[in-house]
Design a protein around this nucleic acid. Sequence first.
DNA 1: CGCCGCATTGACGTTCGTCAAGTCTAGTGG
DNA 2: CCACTAGACTTGACGAACGTCAATGCGGCG
Lengths: 237, 237
Amino acid sequence: MTPDTLKVACSSCNLRELCMPVGLQPDELRRIDEIVATRRKVKRRETLFRSGERFSSLYAIRTGVFKTRVMAADGRDQVTGFQMAGEIIGLDGIVNDQHTCDAVALEDAEVCVMPFDRIEELSREVTALQRHVHRIMSREIVREHGVMLLLGSMRAEERLAAFLLNLVGRLHARGFSRDEVVLRMTREEIGSYLGLKLETVSRTLSKFVQEGMVEVANRHVRIVDAEALRLLIHPGN
Amino acid sequence: MTPDTLKVACSSCNLRELCMPVGLQPDELRRIDEIVATRRKVKRRETLFRSGERFSSLYAIRTGVFKTRVMAADGRDQVTGFQMAGEIIGLDGIVNDQHTCDAVALEDAEVCVMPFDRIEELSREVTALQRHVHRIMSREIVREHGVMLLLGSMRAEERLAAFLLNLVGRLHARGFSRDEVVLRMTREEIGSYLGLKLETVSRTLSKFVQEGMVEVANRHVRIVDAEALRLLIHPGN
DNA sequence: CGCCGCATTGACGTTCGTCAAGTCTAGTGG
DNA sequence: CCACTAGACTTGACGAACGTCAATGCGGCG
């Protein structure tokens, strides 16, 4: 049994291999515990932050899945990513001390609130943390390069295949099945992320089913032939 | 006449309002001079760095324009951005100590080489520098969100209008004309960036000319009606 | 002067978006 | 527990936007 007042410090968090403390020594780990000021629960459909709000903290996702979206002046919106346990959101707010996108919980979620000035302070002293913060931001830049490649040069099938493989891969890294996903987002949200309309997402999924590459039951997706999906993306030979 | 051995320190660089030293106090400015190890000239069509190369430095562009591009396994490539004087490139390399995109000079160019470990070292001591490095990375993330919006939800005309306005805006911030651009990139490169084929870029430009919004003579573009272009992007009313 | 890369333009094809109808599911309240 | 509803999803028919293929023009560089 765990004690009643369960202090969920980074040092004892089961996400420490994925999240903020990656690559830190035990003594550094203890110092990083100071970063997490509080935790915050966010209910399904609620926002963690919205575009225009003052930026003060980064958030480490403990449980649940978020989407981030940017909105144009005319109401068009674009989902810029889906984030899950161990991932850090809020980096967009640093430039202008103001968030430029919305983060919406796709299911009940919990995050660790990490005041950014505290992060900066500590990363002046703990080089491993400094390094890690830089890496997190760089990783996000590289991820977005990948999305740009996807949006700029892939066709619907390739985009969806890449999306499914990416999702299942990240879940697998978190100890979930290598070939099963329960989608936390609607077809429309997937479409927005992939630059497609929801009907195209639906049709393309149906096509994958028909060709025996995946099985779909509502939001439950089972990857039957991952290699075939991979081949879709990289037309080998 | 300037002295023969012109030491181009950040503190005396005419890009200091745009580049690395933004927001630093005079005394901090002197310290930041240590960051720039060397300068490097890159000829047109040559690369500053390539995907796979070991990452060691960030680069501040002094003169010239670069494109960055990512390449998929099957050879497809996507231009992820065009960078000009005062902008910082190489951020993609931080995550894995290895570059993940190519930076190609679109014209003869010169960059300041800033070894990243030196940046990290100094930004532990100079808080304003630390802040600024974080902002630069965050700005890049936000910029890419904008590109994702463009690629995911805009039509050809809107994409090209956004591209032209963005380009002319950045040039204007550097003291160039508010309405004239000499494109340093081909139609194909513009297309790759915008997720369009070169023919579509050409046709759309022609359409803009026909409708009196721009004048085009080869790579020389003159924005005649910026407001009309802006209206294309944000269908006001 | 001649070549080559870049750009333009046209005709046609494909992919994806639009519109619409209908089904299914999960959540709600009686 | 069941009926009801609203949102989510699927599927089809059609059309628009953009890509593909091809011919031609043009301008800069050697």
